[in-house]
Amino acid sequence: KELVLALYDYQEKSPREVTMKKGDILTLLNSTNKDWWKVEVNGRQGAVPAAYVKKL
């Protein structure tokens, strides 16, 4: 499985998103959308802005 690093804090704004903190390591589930990537963090799945994460 592919991992990404959170470059910034992000507070979810809808139920389809997830909150992450700078430095979090997230499991990347889907990166086909260039703006929003689906990730899993702390057992929750949701979208985060692609510009806020970097593939490891």
Rank of each mutant, 00 (worst) to 15 (best):
K1D: 09
N42S: 09
L29H: 05
R44E: 05
V39I: 07
K21T: 09
T32Y: 11
E40Q: 09
W36A: 03
E2V: 14
V18G: 02
V48G: 00
K38C: 15
Y10A: 01
P15G: 10
K1S: 11
N30L: 09
D35C: 14
A51N: 12
T32E: 14
K1I: 13
K34L: 10
L5S: 04
D35M: 13
V39W: 01
D24W: 13
Q45E: 12
A6L: 04
L5I: 15
L56Y: 10
E40T: 06
V18N: 04
L7Q: 04
N30T: 08
P15C: 12
T27F: 13
D9P: 06
M20A: 02
N30S: 13
L7S: 02
S14T: 12
T27M: 12
L56H: 05
W36V: 04
A50W: 02
Y10C: 03
E2W: 14
N33Y: 08
G23W: 06
T19Q: 04
A50M: 05
S31D: 15
T19S: 15
Q45L: 09
V53K: 02
W36C: 07
L3D: 03
A47G: 08
K55T: 09
A50Y: 04
A50Q: 05
G23D: 05
E2Y: 13
L29E: 02
K38S: 13
D35N: 13
K1L: 13
V48I: 09
K1M: 13
Y8K: 13
P49E: 02
K22A: 13
L28V: 07
A50V: 06
L26Q: 00
E17P: 06
L7I: 10
V53T: 03
I25E: 03
V41S: 13
L3F: 15
V18A: 05
V48M: 01
S31H: 09
W37S: 02
T19M: 04
K34M: 10
Y8Q: 13
R16P: 05
D24I: 04
E17C: 08
Y52P: 00
L28Y: 02
K54T: 12
V48Q: 00
V39C: 04
S14P: 05
L29V: 12
S31W: 09
K1W: 12
V39D: 01
G46Y: 10
N30H: 08
A47S: 14
N33I: 05
K54V: 14
